[in-house]
Design a protein around this nucleic acid. Structure first.
Length: 574
RNA sequence: GCGAUAGUAGUCUAGUGGUAGGACAGUGGCUUCCCAAGCCACUAACUCGGGUUCGAAUCCCGGCUAUCGCACCA
């Protein structure tokens, strides 16, 4: 049966929203092209995202390469952790995850075994597909990252990034200086990421090249209270928390204040971005009734994450689809990069008041110590500074050798120092949006076939702020100079930054329907009254209602309508 | 990736071993003062590669893509 997915995809293909990529030479699953209308819609959605995260939250956007060196992904764990150990049945040539097979044979922790151990573990395993015994089989890594080499003849490995986040982490120190080393701060990135999925099946939902919009917000681990939390404290969303999932009950509706106070959501930052995400999705036209937030269960959550929620959108075709992930990733990423690089990845956080601390310091008496230990003296002196002295001496370890240094070879100083703050490794709050999934959700929720006088009218109820074509301009008939007036109006609208589409082809009804199908929210029609009274009709896509508007006021009215400042209903009640 | 099924203009579809019709859409024109109206004309397709055959869109094999099942997967 032709379900809504097929109808939406058919429309998207036919009218130029989304196409299979490079159909000319045969397309490859997991790659899509955005056609003229799709690219415009995507841009508008991204710009609304920018409005929320850059303009309102104040996290500037950066843009990093999609190709990264191996070091980045060794640090991030993607080079290892993103790889599955696979094997192939020698009889039926089916592929399986080796660790799953091993676990089916009663091996625990198959995931941590080496390739060789796994191969040994599965020799007696029966193939889940054909039932034959595996025997000696090779276990190989399948890494979800696309690999490339950098430079001619170079052995230097490069990877296409599997997420945009790493670019922000690798720029951490410069970002910290840009924000004058004051937590919290954040950066965002919108761009392509790549995952070489084994078998992408679900159209726009699982792609090998996809667009992410990610924010990495660096916060003081001691202060996970969002400075603007009041904005969303009373905002309520549907939460499908761990408890409801385990008890198999429905999502619960809570305000963000309640959810944080009751400990359902780990902190204000997570709650704040849950609410912001809910509002953003509603703004671009995702049905709030078909939006919920699902908390990751403890066993699916990454071990370092404190709390993680997915914004899920209901699709008639795919069920609940993860569109946004919002996680508190703690200092995992920065710690990983600090360990791999020579950067501390910390921010100096001053204390509210300068703290006075007394510090014990051991100063070696080099005049005695030097001659006594000779070549080892410098190292022993350095080790002494860190040592805990006993009553008559201190033990230090130098080059694996334990040396007892008598108390008369050093003096103990007690000094009062002023401590003005501490080096803090921030925690990362990460809202991560799948832009392609947002677009699909919007299209599916906007699609409607309604019956008008026995005819089916196909309408995309796109929000005026994301509709690719914002206004259509028609002469009612192509004579008496009506077309000239309509063309002039089109240019006036275009000059005001409104994407206006002039059309004089065919009957007026057909032109309305054409625009309905691509979601154009408003249509302006020029008729004889335009010449006599100086007014045009403005037609609303959703209600098909019309009002007469003064030609002189038209541009201003439409600018305001397309930006969502006013609605068509406001015009009719005036 | 494996198995099953399928692939005909932009879309939907008819069809047969002898090189393809329809509908809708689109374009040009006529008509038309408000919701896919009417009339005329036009454009436009056999998924790709190989094989069998005098001849293949049709039969066979393979690739690609889509749908479904399995596996995989945020």
């Amino acid at each position: 049966m032709s379900d809504i997915y097929e109808k939406v995809i058919e429309l998207a293909k036919r009218r130029g929203f989304v196409w299979p990529s490079a159909e000319l030479y045969g397309s490859v699953a997991g790659f899509i092209d955005y056609g003229p209308l799709g690219a415009m819609t995507k841009r508008r959605i991204e710009d609304i995202w920018r409005h929320y995260y850059i303009i309102r939250e104040g996290y500037y956007e950066i843009e990093c390469p999609t190709v990264g060196t191996e070091a980045i992904y060794l640090a991030s764990g993607h080079a290892k952790g993103f790889a599955d150990k696979m094997c192939q049945c020698p009889h039926c040539h089916e592929y399986f995850r080796a660790d799953h097979l091993a676990e089916a044979c009663g091996i625990e922790n198959g995931a941590v075994l080496s390739k060789e151990d796994l191969a040994a573990a599965i020799t007696d395993a029966a193939c889940p597909s054909c039932g034959e015994t595996f025997g000696q089989t090779e276990v190989f890594d399948f890494n979800l990252m696309f690999q490339t080499t950098i430079g001619p003849g170079s052995q230097r490995k490069g990877y296409l990034r599997p997420e945009t986040a790493q670019g922000i982490f690798t720029d951490f120190s410069r970002l910290s200086r840009f924000y004058r080393q004051k937590l919290p701060f954040g950066a965002v990135q919108i761009g392509k990421s790549y995952r070489n999925e084994i078998s992408p099946r679900q159209g726009m939902i699982r792609l090998r090249e996809f667009t992410q919009a990610e924010a990495e917000i660096f916060v003081n681990p001691e202060e996970k209270t969002h400075p603007a939390f009041a904005r969303y404290a009373d905002y309520s969303v549907d939460l499908w928390a761990i408890e409801q999932q385990q008890q198999n009950t429905e999502a619960i509706t809570k305000t963000m204040r309640q959810a944080v106070d009751e400990g359902i959501i780990a902190n204000e930052y997570i709650a704040y971005y849950l609410a912001l995400t809910h509002e953003l999705l509603a703004t671009i036209g995702v049905d709030p009734k078909r939006t919920r937030f699902r908390q990751h269960l403890p066993d699916e959550r990454a071990h370092y994450a404190i709390d993680c929620w997915d914004a899920e959108v209901y699709s008639e075709r795919f069920g609940w689809v993860e569109v946004v992930g919002i996680a508190d990733r703690t200092d995992y990423d920065l710690r990983a990069h600090a360990a791999e690089s020579s950067d501390s990845m910390t921010v100096f956080v001053p204390f509210d008041e300068v703290r006075k601390e007394t510090r014990k310091r051991i100063v070696a008496n080099m005049g005695v110590l030097g001659p006594k230990y000779r070549g080892k003296a410098a190292k022993i002196a350095a080790a002494l500074e860190e040592a805990m002295p006993g009553p008559d001496g201190a033990e230090v370890v130098v080059d694996g050798e334990t040396i007892f240094v008598p108390g008369d070879l050093y003096t103990l100083h007690e000094e009062e120092v002023e401590v003005r703050g501490a080096e803090v490794m921030p925690h990362v709050i990460e809202p991560s949006y799948g832009v392609d999934r947002m677009i699909y959700s919007v299209l599916e929720h906007a699609y409607e076939e309604e019956e008008i006088d026995g005819e089916v009218r196909t309408v995309l109820h796109l929000a005026p702020c994301i509709a690719p074509v914002q206004v259509a301009v028609f002469p009612l008939v192509k004579k008496d100079g009506l077309d000239t007036i309509a063309r002039e109006i089109t240019v006036d609208l275009q000059d005001a930054g409104v994407l206006a589409d002039y059309d004089d082809n065919g009957a007026i009804g057909r032109r309305y329907r054409r625009q309905d199908e691509i979601g154009t929210p408003f249509a302006v029609t020029v008729d004889t009254e335009t010449k006599e009274e100086g007014t045009v009709t403005l037609r609303d896509r959703d209600s098909m209602a019309q009002v007469r508007v003064k030609t002189d006021d038209l541009v201003q009215t439409l600018v305001s309508l397309t930006r969502g400042r006013t609605t068509f209903a406001d015009l009719t009640t005036e």
